[in-house]
Design a protein around this nucleic acid. Structure first.
Lengths: 342, 342
DNA sequence: CTCTGGCACTCTGCTGGGTCGAGTGCCAGT
DNA sequence: ACTGGCACTCGACCCAGCAGAGTGCCAGAG
């Protein structure tokens, strides 16, 4: 085996041992646990070179070595193979998820499952609604000039607004206008994807009588509002308590991490940025300082996509068992996708 | 001043100093910061008696004293006066909450506000709907024999169902039935608490014409369903990161606390049990081991009600500034109530 | 050129002893 | 009933010394 090759073996051994013990690993300890076929001195030379390359570092002059973020990067990219799940594990996952009764439940179960499989914080984006469509739009006069606008989405969610249309709607003429506008809205929007709807409605309005237009404008406005609220995305978390268990892995404190986890907007961005360019079944890993968000600089994020949209993953210390974690994330995402497809 | 009275002063001084410094407080230090008008020896005697009564304890033989849960209890019940908020603080709270655009936003802002005012974890129950009332029920024929039932609750939430009433509703007679049933529903249910509504409607149905009854039965059924979905309760959290700041205040670790915070069911029970028997404007405090939930044994909970239903509060270390915290909780609840009423 | 064994050196962590100071409990006196 | 004083206790802190782990480097073997 060439020197380069052996050095990578050494790096892998260091990562594995460090993940297991969370203590800096020295040349001698390495020899005991791994058959490298060379002496301690050689390993020391290799380590020294790995250190020069920035893949490992020594916390102080005479301690063992610890992988750097770059070291983990190389480990993940070139040395790690995902640890396949056992048959029993797969069955357990499948059964647990199969018990879910509705979308909320699927998401809730998945994220909790992932958290407990990995002993880390799990994050899951709600299925993105940008691909949902309009099922029905209803208008109801609720007295005076006020009209209630109800938007029903094909996922079963309902959004509702009351809007003042500026003229009395309780008389015969008002009723007629309402009927016309309602017909127009449903003709244009029913079955259309939510993001397209505002444009469709606006262009349709030009073809209406001026009398109807005034009312329609107010209604369409509030519909736009309702659509926006529907596409507003959400994330759910589980396993925050797992952070406390590994508290020693965080240099300063877990404070910044908890803060970042509370910023759901940040998590959403994170999930979509990481899962944006992924193949089916592959997993993205962002390690330590690679992470764009200040509070997560001391963590690694392992993420993937599920279903037709939406990301999920886990957040944990950089010192994490990447092969197992990656396998868990992929497995859960796989089964969630299956369930959502059906 | 009698001896008993002075001992209580001593207890108060100990609590105040300990909350400030988080270090055990001794007799001498007490004299420096408080004018008790007696000597150190006297204070020592008092302390010794307070210790016998179980209100304070010494972490080890020769350290100062620390309040016990019972000590805090006495402090809260007999010695503390809520620290009134300044005019500026009140204004700031009011303005921040006034900027909210919908119910979700009100809840979100309130809970974040409370967390940052108290530097602790804030918990807020979504307006509990068991005490909510019906604002309006609307029926809309949506073609054929299908009718959309819309339930509007006084908190602003809306629930909607489509139900098949078994006969065509698009003709004149159908419209008339719809109108009758709608009138009945609103006459019976408007302003009534949600849990009472099903019973009220069922008894009212007996007084209807057979023709209307058939339709009403289907509608009432689906209303029951909607009511049930509405009473499903939720809590929101903010300020989890504040736990990290006071991590030293927790004997073991914050792990169990984080776990408890993830159990939303536990938090819901907590909120409703604590806010169940409260007067308007009063605040409930549960200290340390008084708490029924294992994971929260090392924390105190300060809670109150807001609006016509629903609890909110904060969770923090037993070593907390009760007067200020209680005042903040009360103030935020007060303004939230005002906003929800309007 | 690469690997090995050996050696000197450096650092951390731990231990034991000594001191300091805060704080207590008790007692006799006012 | 309160006070001043005194002896005592015990943790916190500092320091020195020691053991152990680990390194870097070098000279020699393959």
């Amino acid at each position: 085996m060439s020197g380069d090759e052996r050095r990578l073996h050494v790096l892998r051994a260091i990562v594995q041992d460090y993940v297991r013990t969370s203590e800096p690993v020295g040349s001698k300890a390495l020899l005991e646990r791994h058959q490298l076929g060379v002496s301690a001195a050689t390993v020391r030379n290799d380590m020294s070179q790995l250190e020069e390359e920035g893949l490992i570092a020594a916390p102080h002059t005479s301690a063992g070595r610890v992988p750097t973020d770059a070291g983990y990067r190389v480990f993940v990219d070139r040395l790690a193979t995902m640890k396949p799940m056992t048959r029993a594990e797969r069955r357990a996952i499948e059964e647990f998820l199969a018990g879910a009764v509705d979308l909320d439940d699927v998401v809730g179960r998945s994220v909790r499952l992932l958290a407990s499989l990995t002993n880390q914080v799990a994050v899951m984006q709600y299925p993105s609604l940008t691909r949902s469509t309009v099922r029905h739009i209803e208008l109801v006069s609720v007295g005076g000039s006020r009209v209630m606008v109800v938007l029903i989405v094909n996922t079963g969610r309902v959004e509702q607004r009351v809007v003042d249309v500026g003229r009395d709607m309780t008389d015969q003429a008002g009723e007629q206008v309402l009927q016309d506008v309602r017909a127009m809205l449903n003709a244009e929007a029913t079955g259309q994807p939510l993001p397209d709807v505002p444009a469709l409605l606006h262009s349709a309005m030009d073809r209406m009588t001026p009398d109807n237009q005034a009312v329609a404008a107010a209604v369409v406005d509030s519909l736009g509002d309702a659509l926006l609220a529907q596409t507003e995305e959400r994330v759910v978390l589980a396993g925050t308590a797992n952070l406390a268990r590994v508290v020693t892995d965080f240099p300063r404190s877990i404070g910044p991490v908890l803060e970042a986890l509370e910023e759901h907007v940040v998590l959403l961005k994170l999930m979509s940025s990481m899962s944006g360019f992924l193949d089916e079944d592959s997993v993205a890993v962002s390690i330590g300082a690679e992470n764009p968000y200040e509070g997560l600089r001391s963590t690694s994020v392992v993420a993937t996509t599920y279903g037709s949209a939406g990301g999920m993953g886990v957040i944990g210390p950089t010192r994490m068992d990447y092969p197992t974690t990656m396998a868990s994330v992929r497995a859960v995402a796989h089964y969630v996708s299956e369930i959502l497809d059906s």
